[in-house]
Design a protein around this nucleic acid. Sequence first.
DNA 1: CTGTTAGCGCTTTCAC
DNA 2: GTGAAAGCGCTAACAG
Lengths: 331, 331
Amino acid sequence: MLDVARAAGVSRATVSRVFTAPSSVAEETRTKVMDAVAQLNYVLNSAARSLRSGRSNTIALLVGDIAQPFHSQLAKAVAHAAEGRGYSVLLCDLDHSITRLERLLESLPLQGVDGVILATGDDIDTDAVRAAIREAEERDTKVLLGTPQLAGIATLVMTTDYESVAYQATKHLLDQERWPVALLGGGASSVLSPLLKQGYLRACSEAGRSEADAILAVTEYSTDAARAATQGLLSGPVRPEGIVASSVSVALGAMSALADAGLGTPGQIGLVACEEVLLAEQLRPRLTTVGTKLDLQGAAMADALIDAIQGNSAESRDWVPQLNLRESSAR
Amino acid sequence: MLDVARAAGVSRATVSRVFTAPSSVAEETRTKVMDAVAQLNYVLNSAARSLRSGRSNTIALLVGDIAQPFHSQLAKAVAHAAEGRGYSVLLCDLDHSITRLERLLESLPLQGVDGVILATGDDIDTDAVRAAIREAEERDTKVLLGTPQLAGIATLVMTTDYESVAYQATKHLLDQERWPVALLGGGASSVLSPLLKQGYLRACSEAGRSEADAILAVTEYSTDAARAATQGLLSGPVRPEGIVASSVSVALGAMSALADAGLGTPGQIGLVACEEVLLAEQLRPRLTTVGTKLDLQGAAMADALIDAIQGNSAESRDWVPQLNLRESSAR
DNA sequence: CTGTTAGCGCTTTCAC
DNA sequence: GTGAAAGCGCTAACAG
């Protein structure tokens, strides 16, 4: 830095200012410095910068499972938005482990990340997590929650309205005169389950169907479990004409079971998944979904978090999902 | 740190040594320090540490497209292995842009990452990339290449033998007495294409099929393009009895076209994909693949890179893929 | 608008 | 086996 300063005939402080507060430096001086920087191929040392300023220009992205399309698409959007604003993204895969989450939430702020995005559908409401989030915020590490849980506790929340997701999915099938319609998924590990159930039941009752006739096929969020559950449904006393799958994995299980039962062709049993991912377009039949645009939502998450970090006002937001009509629910 | 030192009745230097070279500190002193650390809830400041030591305990993972299952599964494995060794992972999505790659390769080493894993199948052989890798190595930032390209240039290379992938996939179909067998995919943007083609042709010629009878259905690596290409194949003069799809996306396109043509049921046209991902198990028909175990390969990548960073001997390796027999190629 | 100054918290010789 | 001392490269008051 001293070399640059000398080459430009200024002090190191001025060189620093050119990077941190360009507007506070005279136009002319700035160009001189920039020239010297270019000439000497100078780059700021980020470690020194972090040490001195207390900011690392790094955010951590914590996801339930990066191998899931939903999370990897979200990660992509977050990474691009962050890069655009000069931030690096630390990838932390929780692998559905709450212990790991607690550990990360405790260590990351001390590690020096400026912010954390927490995106998972898993149940994470423990004392340790609450305490860690509170501590993080006290240490001036901003936390953005991408889950309906713990909403009050973090400065920023950016969730999807999952009640509406299931409502729209169910209503769509009911509007096609399908009945019964089953809700598939909703294992206890996910905090989305009760929300999806609410939306499902609301659509049912609005359509004049009693709760007693509703079919809640509770199953874990794995494809295998969902396939088995669907098989049970198909061979049960009342075969559903529509299925609302709580995730894409679950929908894949349902599709398998339908295909095995010779019901794979669109038009017979309607299927809607409660997540919008690229894969939906690549399957056959193409999968109807209800969900938000992940690229927009991910970018908004990064932007909001970085705004908060930089002291700009940032707004929490509840995202309204949309129906993406495709073949799997064609009439 | 001073607090800890005082509480333990030692100097700051000793506290530091407890973290950096525990074996150089007397057993007794070490426990005293550890106790003080626990008591005071002390954590090393990573920025200061990086500044002073010149190491950041951070590696960057550059992937062609994190939204692709192949890359997100790899990322998961890398993240876990790195975490286990005390390293953080910076996620960089190239989004298939070589400009972005060049920029990252130039900036990351200066940013202070200790190592870089570059995993993409795209063609990245430009002067700028070669220069950037060389410079990175000169700056003591280790580079691990997860691509068959530029092999000589980086200290570490960890590739999959894609010639063998296509060879095995093709041979598997030929062994089932299927003919003709088409190779689907292989657009010019991917450096894997020529390797896959080689393996495919080798299997054909070993089975006594002449190159003239081979079917190379060149298409981009997108599902839509692959579907169209498969449709062309099915309505062409010689309908193939087997298809080797160069990626899962391509295989999805082929599956769509087969389903549309009423050939979706296993047993009619055999399909094998040249990547092993979790999704293969979730589809119906389940997709036969040839590929390596991504969790092992990703972990090995992280381990090798970190070994190299830490000055331990690290070995490059060419991974031998395996056939994962599933329904899509059932007889 | 620019320079001076005083560290940020840690590691690492070098003595002892 | 441990301590003293000297910075790593940068930023942020504070003057001017």
